[in-house]
Design a protein around this nucleic acid. Sequence first.
DNA 1: TTATATGCAAACGCTTTGCATCACG
DNA 2: CGTGATGCAAAGCGTTTGCATATAA
Lengths: 155, 155
Amino acid sequence: MTSSQPLVDAIGDAGYRLTGPRRVVAELVAARAGHFTANDIIEAARALHLGVGRATIFRALDLFTELDVLERIDLPSGDHAYVPCEPQRHHHHIVCEDCGAVTEVEDLGLGAAIEQIQRRTGWQVETHRLELFGRCPDCTRRRLRGIDVTASDET
Amino acid sequence: MTSSQPLVDAIGDAGYRLTGPRRVVAELVAARAGHFTANDIIEAARALHLGVGRATIFRALDLFTELDVLERIDLPSGDHAYVPCEPQRHHHHIVCEDCGAVTEVEDLGLGAAIEQIQRRTGWQVETHRLELFGRCPDCTRRRLRGIDVTASDET
DNA sequence: TTATATGCAAACGCTTTGCATCACG
DNA sequence: CGTGATGCAAAGCGTTTGCATATAA
């Protein structure tokens, strides 16, 4: 995601008001490369003196999530984060632990695995949540070359 | 889980002190049928006038989690909960949305799916988190018989 | 014009921490 | 005994809410 257009469009398409603050949040979200927390956006807004309040940012993020252009995920740390994503089809995310980049992956056999789980356990699976954490191709390469930006994920 | 023994044992085996408050938390956890929140335990402790402080309960739950006899999961709502679980082998949980029961499932082909994801995307997957939500056999049966405890998941 | 959205600040719920005291081993 | 564990209360976060005001449609 590079443009805030999809986010802005989603608001209009759903019949919500296209307000200044919402455009601002859409911009800030679009400017992110990968996942981000609500606080990232709040700080960015404050640093740029955009005059958008915390509450409004939370409300906008909620709205985007409801419109399926954003998804709320749980990091291994237990923290909540958001990732931009295409609406429509079912998918999951891989989050890069080095640079924070995110990519979407489709089902890839998970459906079959769940079928099997149901058959073997007698449980009915309604929803599932799969989150993958690892390294994007760039960061993998960087590691292999021994350049190693950061050992893990501290600032 | 019906006995607090495994929890208590885990403490001793790991060389931590087997204190009164920790035994209490172990009891309260063992008394739970499925998942529970830290708050559930805190309230239970208070209701029974067991004189165990909040902080101690959080510390005990952390300890159990560290010892792999408890696992912290994220509910679809985004809330944090704990589920009792066997240590050792890698596994996932299915949480019953009706009664809160939990069962463990082994890998079941997920490994292969991840292999494939890596091959197709070029990303390196380090860890993953899969949480399944649905209905246990009992609650499934109950629904089929039309007794229908709750229509969906409202109170 | 009028319902919707905003900003602020206060309230909230969950979790952690500082610190003096307590008790397991 | 001595160190690790506890309880309390206060602090810390992230997030939500009430309400008067501003604004998109």
